[in-house]
Design a binder for these strands. Structure first.
Lengths: 226, 226
DNA sequence: TCAAAAGTGTTTCCCTTACACCCATGC
DNA sequence: GCATGGGTGTAAGGGAAACACTTTTGA
């Protein structure tokens, strides 16, 4: 392999796109940005950018997460590579898509001043630029599967949460209701919850207990699944 | 976005690599090729190549499958994108890896004359070039998961097979033995088998029944899982 | 008749599911 | 005291797992 011979292959780009999930007021939301440049000026899309040749895919994803919400700590997982020839109108760009789960209260430190952005409830996501709707469809399938097999939903919640909130999260993402007693039985049997006292909001009704995770057991399940 | 501005991003390559699985004599095998060029001359690797800017990822994968075994029909599924900066010694190459399941008897039409190749029993796979061992590890995890959730193992077997062969395939891939009666109960309950008569080999012992699939029910399970 | 592989049922256990009422709190 | 949401147990059904012997065939 010599340099001349391979030059012809190096006329394409690789981008990384991020589907960032958040959970707020009982709704699963994704982070979208308004595009300012043609041919998609005015359209909404997920954050994405071409990567440089000295940047790994993961680094690019974390950098973009930092640009989007001012934080590189949240969970990121590779979703899929999208490689249709015509997926980018200005040239050949292959996209490696990641998705991220963040807590909208504690993980969001800042938004970019130079881009209009908003969180959109997933069922209300409009037509997006590029093939980003296709990415979202795939990301939703993955998220539902992961939610069933791994303790991943916790990453969308604050450090302390009630079982009611956890159940609402599951119901919202899975798209159907769950039996309260069965849900609690299943979760508590996993033994990954630590009691943290009681909530002190001024909602009507009995004060729910707050829980957080046993980080070690949590880590085990993340690797091996339930 | 103008052309000048993005030129700096277009100095990397994208390759597609194929982990091709076959099953022969009770062993799960992968297809490997000997590399003839430095810096990996003499080393073994999976088939892979840089893609051109007018070639989709899937097309490249099928083309490579054709080059490897002379057939573009078998099952292919995207595995992962590998993007470490140093993964290719000669430049920045991001790899999108696919894996394929073929029947070594009926799907292999021809091998390339210009490349030395061989099928290697997975536990005996040596150190491979690039990050191909890492790819194999990930491909094995995926294959095991798929085998449990989808009727995917059938793709490694001939069109007609015995339940003993099917069970041996599962045991080989999952790495542990299965109870014969429970295995048969589970498989027959799926209702995807069609009886095809009896084997006519001259092995000792009772002649096993041959089965094939009901393609429609098979397709359903492929989409939705068990 | 023996060696080799195919084929076949039942029981136990646990997990899943369905289902309804009392408890604590603020107003 | 009532409205609001939190919290709890039990019974039935279904799938998973454990377990051993008989059948067919060729040599």
């Amino acid at each position: 392999m010599n340099t001349d011979k391979i030059t012809s292959f190096f006329n394409l780009g690789v981008s990384v796109t991020l589907v960032i999930y958040g959970f707020e007021e009982g709704q699963l939301k994704v982070f979208t940005q308004k595009i300012s440049k043609n041919p998609y000026a005015g359209a909404w899309s997920f954050p994405g950018k071409l990567i440089k040749s000295d940047e790994s895919l993961e680094d690019a994803a974390y950098t973009m997460l930092d640009e989007a919400i001012g934080n590189t700590k949240p969970y990121i997982e590779q979703l899929n590579a999208f490689g249709k020839i015509t997926r980018h109108p200005l040239g050949r760009v292959i996209d490696v898509t990641f998705y991220s789960l963040i807590n909208m209260k504690s993980d969001v430190k800042s938004y970019r001043a130079d881009k209009e952005s908003k969180w959109v409830h997933v069922p209300k996501v409009p037509e997006l630029a590029y093939d980003h709707n296709e990415m979202l469809n795939l990301a939703m399938l993955r998220l539902r599967r992961r939610l069933i097999n791994r303790p991943i939903g916790f990453k969308l919640l604050p450090a302390e949460f009630t079982l009611g909130e956890l159940q609402a999260l599951y119901e919202e993402i899975l798209g159907h209701e769950l039996d309260k007693r069965n849900f609690r039985k299943k979760v508590t049997k996993l033994n990954i919850l630590l009691t943290k006292g009681h909530e002190t909001t001024d909602n009507p009704g009995r004060k729910p207990r707050l829980f957080s995770f046993d980080p070690e057991k949590y880590a085990n399940y993340m690797e091996q699944g339930f």
